[in-house]
């Protein structure tokens, strides 16, 4: 089936099914921010470099500016908004707050999501593997150390 114009698509975001009409050239980033009003997802480069548009797709972190919305049919998307009641996620949020891992906050959601992924999925999470895990996200404010410490604390 070739999708031409806007086609309605059922996507699952934060455990809620949305039926929305989406054009083939709309990215997941556009759909989340503009169509669904999910503003915790930010963007700064629109070309895969900064990583602050990262969301979890079927549990894995991916940069939403480089994902077409039609690719996420039948997949489930998680953003910060969907994890606010998750116990592990709350612990991670507290760890960020306690360790001073937040400054301007523009990158914070992306680091939280990737941190959450790392804690959940990596055994023997050490400082180096955290650094590698978050290396695709830029933070201009914090110098990363407090972010790394916040994730490490919950490994």
């Amino acid at each position: 089936m070739i999708v031409n114009e806007s086609e309605s698509l059922i996507i699952n975001v934060n455990n809620i099914e949305h039926k929305i009409s989406v054009k083939p050239n709309e990215t997941l980033l556009d759909v989340l921010r503009l169509k669904l009003g999910i503003k915790s997802v930010k963007a700064a480069c629109w070309s895969g470099d900064c990583g602050i548009c990262t969301v979890l797709i079927d549990g894995k972190p991916m940069k939403s500016c480089l994902v077409l919305s039609h690719e996420i049919r039948n997949k489930s998307i998680m953003t910060v908004e969907g994890l606010l009641e998750d116990e592990l996620f709350q612990k991670l949020q507290n760890s960020f707050v306690k360790n001073g891992a937040i400054q301007c906050g523009f990158c914070t959601s992306a680091f939280l999501l990737v941190g959450y992924y790392l804690i959940k999925n990596k055994r023997n999470l050490d400082l180096l593997s955290i650094k590698k895990g978050i290396n695709g996200i830029i933070c201009r404010c914090t110098g990363y150390k407090q972010i790394i410490d916040s994730i490490y604390e919950l490994k």
Binding site: V80, Q93, V97, I102, G105, F106
Partner: peptide, 20 residues
């Protein structure tokens, strides 16, 4: 070392920027 006043809004993704 008082916790930042803007910390919760920022970890909850609700802090609003001109961008938003």
């Amino acid at each position: 070392s008082i916790i930042r006043k803007d910390a919760l809004e920022k970890v909850n993704g609700t802090a609003t920027y001109a961008f938003d």
